[in-house]
Design a protein around this nucleic acid. Structure first.
Lengths: 202, 202
DNA sequence: GTCTATAGATTGATAGAC
DNA sequence: GTCTATCAATCTATAGAC
């Protein structure tokens, strides 16, 4: 029966994390008060402090959950694509029109946590590690990954692709008509092709 | 002598705006309290409310100031560059290592205001217009701008360049070693060259 | 136009009942 | 482990003196 208690605790924890994810995405970190998050999870602030100690504890836990949830989904979707264009299209769609649980929340949360990391040195390394993971796993999944003679340049390409996707998504969110899917995929394709051409020469 | 009063009012206004710019960049919009901003400008909250009415009034004014200050500086620096590579390098340096008054503050403020615009429909069009201006002025300054038969594709290239610069700066701020200046300029160059190649074919 | 003083609401966090 | 109740601090905004 100790098992049931653990489960209940885990459920409470996840309810709080989901509520926090949505509320931080909607109102920002400062705007998501402890009481409001707890109430949205049909709990009270006491439960939240019992689980995370302080508000920052909730944010750190949210950071980890966000790290796991997004990276794995994107990587799986990427590798499941058959053609190279499908791969790049899935990379773009996953940010521009996210299908995962939580939907839009993760994208705004991404920026919220990025800002938080820029201002709080303690959290910076966690967020930095998440971006590095994204670069690495994307570099591994890239077309020419079999040739492992210069992993640095492969991660460079991954950096460019991620940068392009994030920057385009920012512009599209302000004005959906400003960025077409075709433009995004064409831009990604251009970078990948240029990389492949450089690779052939060497 | 009415002139002196106007000047004093304008000075007060600018002191408040500069203090708000730095404090919002450092602590975020929610973290930059009215009292703290006023005190940083060697004034009190009374002066701030006399100038902007409410806190959101200050933010809107800050939005406009930010729009003017950044776009013009970047455009001027861009056009002052001689070679094409210098142009692209200046585009990158202006975000990665900003020389303008306020320095780093503008970059973090950029993200803060972007998030604010995403959440407040009233402010969204202002921020969206700023990004559109950036795309337009960059498109005008681009190499092949003389051929004006397809302005849409030129703005598309500008969208890609801006996206790349923003996304790379985000990654570099978390980990300065992750993004080299050479990689950034090479990425920009790749996109510009591909565009020029497409243009020649047509 | 700016300052002082203060009202009214909300915040993060703690203590003790259950 | 979660809830109720509460404290001290902080916030936006207003009112009236100067």
């Amino acid at each position: 029966m100790a098992r049931t208690q653990e489960q209940r605790r885990a459920e409470t924890r996840q309810q709080l994390l989901e509520a926090a994810r949505d509320m931080v995405a909607e109102r920002g970190i400062a705007g998501a008060s402890v009481d409001a998050v707890a109430e949205a999870a049909n709990l009270t602030s006491g439960a939240l402090y019992g689980q995370f100690g302080r508000k920052e504890g909730l944010l750190v836990a949210l950071l980890d959950a966000w790290k796991d949830a997004t990276a794995s989904v994107i990587a799986a979707d990427f590798e499941a694509s058959s053609s190279r264009d499908d791969q790049l299209a899935s990379l773009w769609r996953n940010l521009a029109d996210p299908p995962a649980d939580g939907g839009d929340a993760w994208v705004l949360l991404e920026h919220e946590l990025w800002l938080y990391a820029c201002r709080h040195p303690g959290a910076r390394s966690t967020v930095a590690a998440r971006y590095e993971d994204a670069r690495r796993s994307l570099a591994d999944a890239l077309p020419g990954a079999a040739v492992a003679d210069d992993p640095a340049s492969e991660e460079g390409l991954a950096s460019l692709l991620i940068a392009l996707v994030i920057g385009l998504e920012m512009q599209r969110r302000l004005d959906p008509d400003a960025i077409s899917d075709e433009l995004a995929v064409a831009g990604l394709r251009t970078l990948v092709d240029a990389f492949a051409r450089t690779r052939e020469r060497a």
